[in-house]
Simulated scan of single mutants.
Amino acid sequence: MIVVMEPGATQEQIETVVKRVAEFGFGTKIVVGAERSIVGVLGAPLPDTLKEALELLPGVEEVVRITKRYKLVSRDFHPIDTVVHVRDVAIGGNEVAVIAGPCSVESEEQIIETARAVKAAGARLLRGGAYKPRTSPYEFRGLGETGLKYLAKAREETGLPIVTEVLSPQDVDLVAEYADVLQVGARNCQNYLLLEAVGKAKKPVLLKRGMSVQIEEWLLAAEYVMAQGNEQVILCERGIRTFETFTRNTLDLAAVPVVKRLSHLPIIVDPSHGTGRWYLVPSMMLAAVAAGADGLIVEVHPNPDHALSDGAQSLTFENFATVMPRLAAVAQAVGRSLPLPQVPEAETALSPAD
């Protein structure tokens, strides 16, 4: 349920609404807009008597029931787009944010080299897995805390904020010591204990869509995070499992405008996992931004042929640098921005005068 206040409603009138809701035993969340404020009522089931009581209060324009099962995530509840701030990077605003780096942190040299290369090409955040969920228990599963330390060193060297995955509730505190964004991977999209744990961590959360998860289920997963008081949630479309086998997954770019319609949360796209083939990644990067994505998360590796995980879908430094100017052009075409680092002009040698 949301209480829409009249334009010009006073702070005292808003506080009266909050107090009345509390008398019924429910919580509230206030959203201040440019023209009017909205008071969201949290809890269920909400009695009709509460709606009637709120409609009588001064400054209340209307009381509307939200029929969707997700409340905090819903655009009905929060009509203004949320912008998640990660250090000096805004995700969800006008600028398209690109997150890039290797699937797995393999060594200090590898992650620092990659961080420098992706920053030089225009990436704003660094990704890298220290803990890796793998289909087979015999595959490389990450360096653990050592990998986190290498990521922190790469941030120190380049200034790029860190995005890395956390696998279990027990690891949240440790990963949060190092990471700027806690990633919940596709396999854990409906791990509700983990969702609650990252919600309590009070750090930005990047929530990937599960490979067989419907959009409503995905938004309800985000609701678990936000219900813990954490409003810094970034959704990530990374492809879903279908009958098609040529690509690793089927990248559902229609999910971008759908989520934009249903939710106020920013949404980014992962074309690496969405396709599983590096040569498809650049095209899907462009398409994602054209579809309205607020950012991208892309796998980049110094030597994909020797990567310990996901080499087939990783871009080389050169391929990543080549696509970024094209990506900036698409962003500009759809009314967004993607600033790229200025490349210093080569010094021109002057011939000595005769």
Score class of each variant (00 low, 15 high):
A333G: 05
P137Y: 07
K260T: 00
L143W: 01
G239W: 10
L143S: 10
E177S: 11
G292F: 02
E145R: 15
G210V: 13
A176G: 07
T82V: 11
Y279T: 08
A197P: 08
F26Q: 01
L174F: 11
K202C: 00
G25P: 09
V39W: 13
M226T: 10
A346T: 11
K51F: 00
I268A: 02
S309I: 03
R187Y: 11
V98Q: 10
R20Q: 14
S263F: 05
L56R: 15
H264L: 09
I162Q: 02
R20K: 14
L308N: 02
F246D: 03
G147K: 11
H306A: 14
T135W: 01
P302E: 08
E61I: 02
G129L: 01
P7I: 04
L195G: 11
T322H: 07
D252K: 07
G142A: 09
A123W: 08
I91L: 07
P102E: 10
R127N: 03
K132E: 06
G59D: 13
V84R: 09
E106C: 07
R20S: 12
G274V: 01
V86M: 06
E35H: 13
F26E: 07
D173K: 08
G27Y: 01
A117H: 04
I234Y: 11
R238G: 05
Q332S: 14
V163A: 06
L235A: 02
A329T: 04
H301E: 02
V233Q: 05
I234F: 11
I99Q: 06
R141S: 15
T322D: 07
P344I: 03
D354R: 15
N303Y: 00
P137S: 09
Q11P: 02
Q332L: 13
G33K: 14
A221L: 07
R65G: 06
L46C: 03
G122V: 11
A307M: 08
A130W: 01
Q342Y: 09
V172H: 06
T158Q: 13
Q110I: 04
T250S: 14
E157G: 07
C103F: 09
G93S: 08
L207K: 06
S314P: 00
M324T: 01
V233M: 06
T114G: 01
S272F: 05
Q228H: 03
Y279H: 15
I38S: 11
I234A: 05
D88N: 15
Y138L: 08
D76A: 12
Y70N: 08
R134K: 09
R116M: 04
Y224V: 11
L207H: 05
V163D: 03
L265I: 14
R336M: 12
K260R: 13
A152K: 13
A123D: 12
G92Q: 07
A329S: 13
K51C: 06
V163L: 04
L46F: 05
I30A: 01
A290H: 07
